[in-house]
Nucleic acid binder design. Structure first.
Length: 480
RNA sequence: UCCUACUUAGCUCAGUUGGUUAGAGCAUCUGACUGUUAAUCAGAGGGUCGCUGGUUCAAGUCCAGCAGUGGGAGCCA
């Protein structure tokens, strides 16, 4: 057996001392020709491996460089120095993989997030990204646990989709046809997709919602959790071309049930990370605090990361309608003093980022659920309210992130749905399979989509979405 | 996609009104020290100033185009 090592996390958190063991991991620093800080990714903390001055010959000692992979065997003892409880007093050191210090880009010093993004294949080996991706893992695990405990079915919706009317943005085309212009054409000059792999035009999915609804009207409660793709030319710190989305869909839920589920869900998974990733979140909180110190006092956030997460878990989200939000904004001093770039005057226009931020960060200072938007600015599948003007939509806005959840009670009435599709120029014949759910045993149901990376942003306190997914895809970038 | 700022050593940044051989800190290398905590001390090496073109006796510095990155906006999750 080769892998007879003990994980560093187990050694640092355990109570045992004075026993022999082996660790394997990557060198972070080598101090004083005696102390090697080794990390294996099981925790943000390193174990200190202590080597006697005569243990290694000079040539071997020089190979202990930042980034090298080593195997160290020896006694776990109570540390003789300050700064750590235990340390490994080595009886043997083996270099498993050399790392040329002149060429290895990560050095024991501060690096900018922009630089680390260029070497995303190596950034896992930093404290910050180690913490981020352990938290990301925990959040993903908690999502499955939450829904499983509630009896939801985890539904795998297709990644390649044949319907191009999902209505959530530009799509990436999937094809095996030649791209040099020699693909078979129809008489009118358009591409003949009957010759394509699937015999029709196909794309990467932008949402699993429509398929999710099909399954919800059989299992009652389902959720999806998978990658989604948007070919929008969005160059922001909040958008990716490939991102992961969680989409629950629940039969017999109305809009209020939907809000309750979303709020409970967000609190559950944040709390899971708070409990299971204490050290990682503490590290990220400290990192954020140091970053905040660089900013002017006025721009600093009032709460630290830890406080912010505790606050969200322990307080109710503010719920109000679009109409109420418009009134608050219209009567705000901010609006009267004309501090908004876009002044609020008309009911019916969509809220700008600055308005959402004002509501969340200045007025309520907590997550906000906005409901009942004008039908004109929302999708065709959202249920028309009794007033005939608004739809049963809900968006959850988070401080610092903006929209984190978008959801609605779905239009379950066949005639209304078809009418809305025609209004919004969605051809009903292309979504005939979807309309079948309304033809056969339709029922009240609701669901929402939560952008996983935006949640990871919120929990880690990071500000750029490209730093919370291992290998980010965005316009002009698909490295690694 | 739009607005705006930036791009100089491996990294983070200085570089004045255009003017001799482009600097610092960290990292790296060499040596010293040896219970260190991103160790410390001494010394050394390291540059196509984003790319392309232009103005000028002379361009890191001025102008234009392109690219990339940051911040803001739009689209949204």
């Amino acid at each position: 057996m080769y892998n007879n090592r003990t994980k560093i996390n187990a050694l640092l958190t355990g109570d045992n001392i004075d026993f022999e063991t082996t660790v394997m991991g990557w060198v972070r620093t080598f101090r004083n020709n005696q102390f090697i800080a080794v990390n294996d990714g099981s925790t943000n903390n390193n174990i200190q491996v202590v080597i006697a001055l005569d243990l290694l010959d000079d040539a071997t000692q020089k190979r202990i460089t930042t980034g090298a992979c080593i195997k160290a065997t020896g006694q776990i003892i109570a540390s003789l120095g300050k700064g750590q409880k235990v340390e490994l007093k080595a009886t043997s050191i083996e270099i498993l993989g050399d790392s040329d210090a002149e060429k290895f880009p990560l050095q024991p010093k501060k690096h900018s997030l922009e630089f680390l993004r260029e070497i995303a294949h190596l950034r896992f080996r930093t404290n910050t990204f180690g913490a981020i991706f352990r938290v990301r893992h925990s959040l993903a695990f908690a999502i499955h646990q939450f829904f499983n405990d509630k009896g939801f079915v985890y539904l795998h919706t297709p990644i390649i989709t044949g319907s191009d009317a999902e209505g959530a943005g530009e799509m990436f085309r999937v094809t095996t046809l030649p791209i040099d212009g020699t693909a078979a054409k129809n008489d009118d000059g358009s591409i003949n997709f009957k010759e394509d792999f699937f015999g029709k035009s196909t794309n990467l999915t932008v949402s699993g919602q429509l398929e999710g609804e099909l399954a919800a009207l059989a299992f009652s409660d389902i959720y999806t959790f998978g990658p989604t793709f948007r070919a929008e030319n969005s160059n922001t710190a909040r958008h990716l071309a490939e991102f992961w989305m969680i989409e629950p869909e629940v039969a017999f839920n109305d809009l209020e049930d939907n809000m309750n589920l979303a709020e409970e869900f967000i609190k559950y998974i944040i709390n899971y990370a708070l409990v299971h990733n204490k050290e990682d979140i503490a590290f990220l909180a400290q990192r954020l605090e140091e970053e905040e110190k660089q900013k002017p006092v006025a721009d600093r956030s009032e709460m630290g990361l830890q406080q912010k997460l505790d606050f969200v878990v322990n307080n109710n989200f503010e719920r109000l309608t679009y109409t109420e939000a418009i009134n608050i904004l219209k009567n705000s001093n901010h609006n009267k003093k004309k501090k908004f770039q876009y002044l609020i005057d008309e009911w019916g226009t969509d809220l700008q980022s600055e308005h959402e931020r004002y509501l969340v960060e200045k007025h309520f200072k907590k997550p906000v659920i906005l409901t009942d938007y004008p039908k004109e600015i929302k999708s065709f599948y959202m249920r028309l309210n009794e007033d005939g003007k608004t739809v049963a939509a809900m968006d959850i806005l988070a401080p610092g992130i903006g929209e984190i959840v978008g959801g609605s009670q779905r239009e379950e009435r066949y005639e209304n749905l078809v009418a809305r599709m025609k209004e919004m120029n969605v051809p009903p014949e292309e979504l005939d399979f979807y309309l079948d759910t309304r033809r056969f045993g339709s029922c009240v149901h609701a669901g929402f989509g939560l952008g996983f990376e935006r949640l990871v942003l919120f929990v880690t306190g990071m500000t750029n979405i490209r730093d919370v997914i291992p290998f980010p895809r965005y316009p002009k970038s698909a490295a690694f």
